[in-house]
Simulated assay, not measured.
Amino acid sequence: MRDPYQVLGVEKTASEAEIKKAFRRLAKSSHPDRNKDDPKAQDRFAELNSAYEIVGDKEKREKFDRGEIGADGKPRFQGGGFDDFQGFSSRGPRPGPGAQSFRWTNEGGGATDDDILSEILSGFSSRAGFGGRRGAGPRPQQTRTPGEDVNAAVAVTLEQIVLGEKVRAELPTGRTLEVAIPPGTRSGKQIRLRGQGWASQDGGPAGDAMVTVEFIPHPLFKVEGDNLRVDLPVTLDEAVLGAKVRVPTLGGSVTMTVPANSNGGRVMRLKGKGLPTTTGGHGDLLVALRIMLPETVDPELEALMQRWRDSNRYSVRGPEYGA
């Protein structure tokens, strides 16, 4: 495996933040999901993760820099003889600075070189927790560190919520997912996508993606919990005499009866025409009446209102309004 610093494109003096930034940038650009036509993308991505597992971990990075482990994360004395193990080699101990040179012999018919070296390694393994042959108890189970979570946001329309349509979420990892919005989800709520976050540094489970749902403002409807509210313009004669009018809903327009003598601001309720709820039902649509006069002056209406005021004047404001 290549030098992990070269794989990540950073200097050996790079800070933890610089290494992390380089890994995220490369992980996003080289992710297999974004390079489906490149057969080598998976290998490059695996090499990138392996490199980050070494230099992205403080302890492993220090060991690598000291030469105690290789680019594959394995101790140097494994797989290549014992030449690098504490000054010993397969031919005998290697003298250090100021040390007297010597080697193990078998002149007295005692233990062989290999027996003595094996005994040394066995004792070291027992003390260091590598599971030597003597006195080695059960290995403690290694705790794997989960990867970091990522945050993302998706903008959805009220129509998508009512119809149960999936929406596309682009994650910081470079992956794009189709996300189903659970019934009862409201603006600002987070959806957890397990295993869709950053990969773990030591082989543990990947982190999660926390996707925040944001409603796109609708030109007609306002959200009030599970209910929706809409203003419905009605003419003066419809409010006075009553009428059947068409009302828009997120599932298409429906017919509603406006009772005679309805005041402006009166709220009518259409059952089950609101947003989906967690119980499997729907909220209601609240329809607020708004009485609208003609845009142009109508002489006949003015004359009618004049006669009405002169003969049938009535009060609608109490003393609290200063009447």
Rank of each mutant, 00 (worst) to 15 (best):
195 G>C: 06
195 G>T: 01
195 G>A: 04
196 Q>Y: 14
197 G>E: 03
197 G>R: 00
197 G>P: 11
197 G>F: 07
197 G>L: 10
197 G>Q: 02
198 W>P: 12
198 W>F: 05
198 W>H: 01
198 W>V: 04
198 W>A: 02
199 A>L: 14
199 A>H: 15
199 A>N: 13
200 S>M: 06
200 S>D: 07
201 Q>Y: 10
201 Q>P: 10
202 D>C: 01
202 D>L: 01
202 D>Q: 00
202 D>K: 00
202 D>N: 05
203 G>T: 02
203 G>L: 03
203 G>Q: 04
203 G>K: 00
203 G>C: 11
204 G>W: 04
204 G>S: 08
204 G>R: 00
204 G>M: 05
205 P>H: 02
205 P>N: 05
205 P>M: 04
205 P>E: 09
206 A>W: 02
206 A>P: 09
207 G>C: 08
207 G>L: 07
208 D>Y: 03
208 D>S: 04
208 D>V: 03
208 D>H: 02
209 A>H: 03
211 V>G: 05
211 V>W: 08
212 T>F: 07
212 T>C: 07
212 T>L: 10
212 T>M: 12
213 V>S: 04
213 V>D: 01
214 E>L: 12
214 E>D: 11
215 F>N: 04
215 F>T: 02
215 F>A: 03
215 F>I: 02
216 I>Y: 02
216 I>G: 03
217 P>R: 01
217 P>H: 01
218 H>W: 00
218 H>S: 03
218 H>N: 07
219 P>C: 03
222 K>F: 02
222 K>N: 10
223 V>N: 03
226 D>F: 01
226 D>W: 00
227 N>Q: 04
227 N>C: 09
228 L>W: 00
228 L>A: 08
230 V>M: 01
231 D>T: 13
231 D>G: 13
231 D>M: 10
232 L>E: 09
232 L>M: 09
233 P>Q: 09
234 V>E: 11
234 V>R: 09
234 V>L: 09
234 V>D: 09
236 L>P: 04
237 D>S: 15
238 E>I: 06
238 E>A: 14
238 E>R: 10
238 E>W: 08
241 L>S: 12
242 G>H: 06
242 G>W: 08
242 G>K: 04
242 G>R: 05
242 G>S: 11
243 A>I: 06
244 K>W: 14
245 V>S: 11
245 V>P: 01
245 V>A: 13
246 R>C: 08
246 R>S: 15
247 V>E: 09
247 V>W: 03
247 V>I: 07
248 P>D: 08
249 T>R: 01
249 T>L: 05
249 T>S: 12
249 T>E: 08
250 L>Q: 06
251 G>W: 02
253 S>Y: 06
254 V>D: 14
256 M>W: 10
256 M>F: 15
256 M>Y: 14
256 M>I: 15
256 M>G: 12
257 T>W: 09
259 P>A: 13
259 P>G: 08
259 P>R: 10
259 P>C: 11
260 A>V: 12
260 A>F: 14
261 N>M: 15
261 N>E: 15
262 S>I: 04
262 S>Y: 07
263 N>G: 15
263 N>S: 15
264 G>R: 11
264 G>Y: 13
264 G>E: 13
264 G>F: 10
265 G>A: 11
266 R>I: 09
266 R>P: 09
266 R>G: 11
267 V>Q: 15
267 V>T: 15
267 V>N: 13
